[in-house]
Nucleic acid binder design. Structure first.
Lengths: 203, 203
DNA sequence: CCATATAGGCTACAAATGTTACCCTATTAT
DNA sequence: ATAATAGGGTAACATTTGTAGCCTATATGG
């Protein structure tokens, strides 16, 4: 089965997507005819049959406008807040107010109550986390050794690799130029959450 | 105008959202009746009129299933396909090569006709692109020096840093263990697109 | 040459669907 | 008391809409 669309079928598919986007519901056969300058509903139907056979849409018999464009699945979208900037180098800034919200795919970023942080500094470049990247944080107050976490250290937020060395806690940068931080009892330390995803923008 | 929904109206609205989510198109009046155990289509219609008056949905007269749920904040969200394999010059990817779709925030990933590719191999670890990461590709057939691109080389897709050295084209891995590739005239070479974003999942 | 897929025109029919009219009972505010 | 809103019932009606059959034409592959 050839799953490649013809030019005409691509036109039909793009019209379907545009119509649904604009109106909120799919077009009828005769509305498809009107836009594509086709005379009979049967001919529009044949296009839909072709699109369904090739797997681009799903239909239901005897039901008006029963066209579902596959892949447009907007389901499972979660809105995550961007929680301001965090200095990943020498700990400096605390978590600030929420800058905005971003809609993300729940299947890809599986974290119902997560949030995002924008990385500042170069202390985690060895782990592929660089200045300007966004990290997605899953809030939790514990961590396993070698997890990359966001922690509050003396009222400042920092992103580091978490290592439990016996009774001691060490926050390891991924940058040879920056020494590890040994968290002593004299320091105020708490785990904010774990970095579960990194988003880099290259342009 | 009272914009507060009654319990029953909230039931109706949630049914509408669930139906559209599941089926891809809105329900008819009689389908609303069936689910909410209402006997006449007129009664379902009265609920829709109330929801429209309060600004939660939009309708069109005399058109079947013409219900658009407002404010469901799908604005700016784009759906991008995840390509399993890349073939040269594919404007519309064939369905057999699409592993799935991901909904992404258009403000964050500003690329209307892009697609995603799952990275295999460790040739770009120096640029923070590792095995298993997803990269977002903006289709284009040109590139600037130092862009990270997806290219077809002898019928195989590869992700490398693009360097134009005089008349020569060099594809540079970001891994000291892997030598650069000098693209000679004897090789079939074309640029598929530019890597504009990297998504890493750490768990 | 034949079969198939694509693309379209035309007509008719039955089912799905929105619309209208009139009925009722509560509850709440005027 | 009266009006308005919310919620539900029954029936009839007109339109929208999907389905079906039959026609022509072009291109492609065996």
């Amino acid at each position: 089965m050839d799953k490649t669309l013809t030019l005409r079928q691509k036109e039909v598919l793009e019209f379907l997507e545009g119509f649904i986007e604009a109106r909120g519901f799919p077009p009828s056969l005769r509305e498809i005819c009107a836009r594509l300058r086709i005379k009979g509903p049967k001919n529009a139907r044949k296009h839909l049959e072709a699109l369904e056979k090739k797997g681009f849409i799903r239909r239901s018999a005897n039901i008006s406008r029963a066209i579902e464009v596959i892949g447009r699945a907007m389901g499972g979208i979660v809105s995550m807040p961007i929680a301001g900037s965090v200095r990943a180098g020498a700990p400096h800034l605390a978590i600030e107010d929420i800058l905005g919200h971003v809609a993300l795919d729940g299947r890809l970023f599986n974290c119902p109550d997560g949030f995002l942080l924008k990385i500042e500094g170069d202390s985690m470049t060895g782990a592929g986390i660089e200045h300007g990247d966004l990290v997605i944080i899953r809030p939790q107050n514990h961590a396993d050794t070698n997890d990359i976490i966001v922690a509050m250290l003396d009222n400042e937020a920092t992103v580091k690799r978490f290592v439990r060395d016996g009774a001691r806690v060490v926050l390891k940068p991924e940058n040879p130029a920056i020494p590890p931080i040994v968290v002593g009892k004299d320091r105020e330390f708490s785990i904010i959450g774990k970095v579960i995803s990194v988003i880099k923008r290259l342009e």
